[in-house]
């Protein structure tokens, strides 16, 4: 059994409205930051390998029109 981490973030060119709001609050509080993005993180255990993880992700975990994923084995 391998554990995989699936990170889902808004695509670079797509507006990240949540990230924008959080960034502005942090900046007003005096923090210094260049960029802020908010996404989702999944941990999935399977013995079917990374190809299967990719299929799962494409099936429902993310929306390829607006989001991108990174898969890592843990």
């Amino acid at each position: 059994m391998t554990k995989y981490g699936i990170k889902v973030l808004p695509k670079k060119e797509v507006l990240d409205s949540q990230g924008r709001a959080v960034q502005s609050v942090l900046e007003k509080a005096g923090f210094s930051l260049d960029d802020c993005h908010i996404g989702k993180y999944f941990e999935v255990k399977t013995d079917k390998g990374e190809v299967e993880i990719k299929k799962m992700a494409e099936y429902v975990l993310f929306n390829p029109l607006i989001e991108e994923i990174t898969i890592e084995s843990l």
Binding site: S17, Q18, A21, V22, V25, A29, I38
Partner: peptide
């Protein structure tokens, strides 16, 4: 407040 982004109420609470 803040579109309910992050968690409802979290950003406004600050």
């Amino acid at each position: 407040s803040y579109g309910d982004y992050l968690r409802c109420g979290a950003l406004a609470a600050k």
